[in-house]
Write a protein that binds this DNA or RNA. Structure first.
Lengths: 150, 150
DNA sequence: TTGGTTGCAAAATGTTTGCATGACC
DNA sequence: GGTCATGCAAACATTTTGCAACCAA
């Protein structure tokens, strides 16, 4: 929101990725914008803070945040995940090309990995799991980022 | 515990993998045995149920389970992780060769993958993340197991 | 014996839900 | 105007913590 250069691309992103079945409300729009502006996974609490600290008047309720995120997830607009090294769910707008992250154990920052190098995931399934229907996967690398490594 | 064939291997596993710094108590021993017998990640609640349903008298407290698991983790005896598709932490005894899982979105069963095919993880780090010190990684495949796929 | 561990209860946290009010289409 | 989303508060589930009693080394 601070960066006007991104403002219209977020608008466009919203137009393109907002299913017609999902009603637009002030709260939902702002949550979407926060996520789009962040460009990385956020927790519900982070979203709550980000959205309410830039507002005067009554803050949006936590239940609203959670319900919107559930709606978005059900509509396929975002992906909910939990990092190995973390406690809480994180929410990230679904991208054309999905991403994985390197996560710093110290500062908890998430650095997007270059690409998903995984070849044929089916290779990794055991022999008797031929019937397993793969719908997704996740890779995480964790350790210490350059800043924290010292 | 039901299977006597495994009984002594669990004993041996305990002897080998129990650091001398960790005091042995009845509770800790039983938690270790539950985990060893399961051979797969369990949640704190699952451990609580498994350990207490095979006991008469007062059940072990939840706080004890959690504190033991923390102790084990700090001692490097087990690994704590959270699945993308799940809410709660799971605890698994550390194996010589680490494992990854295919997780069924329907029944939540976890099927160990054959091997970790990842080559050089460093390839996946972005160029400016050269200083990132990798200490671990996680791969998960999710979808529907043969039984649930229908 | 003594410090670390357990049990209990209460607190902290993250998330969900019921219901009345209010906003979008 | 009707339906669905919101806000509030209370419920819920998981995990953590304080403190006294207890156990293993």
């Amino acid at each position: 929101m601070k960066c006007k250069i991104h403002a219209e691309t977020i608008e466009r992103q919203m137009e393109r990725n907002w299913p017609s079945g999902v009603k637009k409300t002030r709260q939902r729009t702002e949550i979407f914008q926060i996520l789009a502006a962040a460009g990385k996974p956020l927790t519900a609490t982070e979203i709550y803070r980000l959205i309410n600290e830039s507002r005067e008047g009554k803050p949006y309720a936590f239940s609203t945040i959670y319900r919107c995120l559930q709606t978005f997830e059900a509509a396929g607009m975002l992906i909910r995940s939990i990092a190995v090294t973390d406690e809480n769910a994180m929410y990230e707008l679904r991208m054309e090309q999905h991403r994985h992250y390197a996560i710093c154990l110290s500062c908890h920052e998430r650095f997007p990995l270059r690409t998903c190098f995984l070849g044929d995931l089916r290779q990794m399934l055991p022999a008797d799991m031929d019937g397993f229907e793969i719908t997704g996967h996740q890779i995480e690398i964790y350790g210490y980022c350059p800043a924290c490594a010292q």
